[in-house]
């Protein structure tokens, strides 16, 4: 574990806590894409299949349970909790996210490190996570102005994988044979998709306005 990866995990944890805070306390999911949340639930479900078979550390298992629990409970809140569901912007959140799942699955069947059930699903989760934010970014364009909590959520979610890239660079130079092209390229694509958002997000900080 290095400082970049720890910072990345804490940033990722902060993003789900911010979203849970928003949904649980003010009972609102305005500006949040349910489709992105559904994709993230699939990402964690397919990435952490080994949670019971391979033990890495208490920290690792704990964080996996947190991410699994939070992603599924956010989907539950947005779908079934009356007060929260009422604030869900169904008309605007229309990105055909199921069209992202199949290509990622096909790509994982073609490009992977090992052709085993767990490895292919794990690779699928990497590809899916890279594009999972798309419905949220499209919703963001449509709803124009968003509240600070949603803005923070997206910023933290985008930042965590950027910190992971620093972690991969660090591990590449400090650990022999640490090469994982698939993870690196998927992580880079994922982070680049936020470039546009980061630009407007920092403008907001400079300008002190809401995220236009």
């Amino acid at each position: 574990m290095n400082i970049f990866r720890l910072a990345g995990d804490m940033t990722h944890l902060a993003s789900v806590l911010v979203l849970l805070l928003k949904i649980h306390t003010i009972k609102s999911c305005a500006g949040v894409s349910l489709r992105t949340q559904e994709l993230y639930a699939i990402v964690f479900a397919t990435r952490y299949l080994d949670i019971f078979t391979s033990f890495v550390s208490v920290y690792n298992t704990f964080m996996k349970l947190v991410f699994l629990g939070s992603s599924f409970s956010i989907v539950w809140y947005m779908r079934y909790h009356k007060a929260v569901h009422r604030t869900y912007d169904r008309e605007q959140d229309t990105f055909r996210h199921w069209f992202l799942v199949l290509p990622c699955l096909v790509l994982a069947l073609l490009i992977h490190e090992k052709f085993t059930f767990l490895e292919v699903l794990w690779t699928f989760s990497l590809y899916l996570e890279a594009v999972a934010i798309l419905p949220q970014l499209v919703l963001l364009q449509r709803t124009r102005n968003i509240d600070n909590l949603t803005g923070q959520y997206i910023f933290l979610l985008g930042g965590y994988r950027g910190l992971y890239i620093l972690n991969w660079i660090y591990r590449y130079f400090t650990e022999p044979h640490f090469v994982h092209w698939i993870t690196w390229i998927a992580g880079l694509v994922q982070t680049l998709l936020y470039a546009d958002f980061f630009y407007y997000y920092f403008l907001r900080f400079i300008g002190g306005r809401g995220v236009e």
Partner: peptide, 10 residues
């Protein structure tokens, strides 16, 4: 067959 390193990242 070389043991693939366990996935220690989240």
């Amino acid at each position: 067959e070389e043991e693939t390193p366990t996935k220690d990242e989240l």
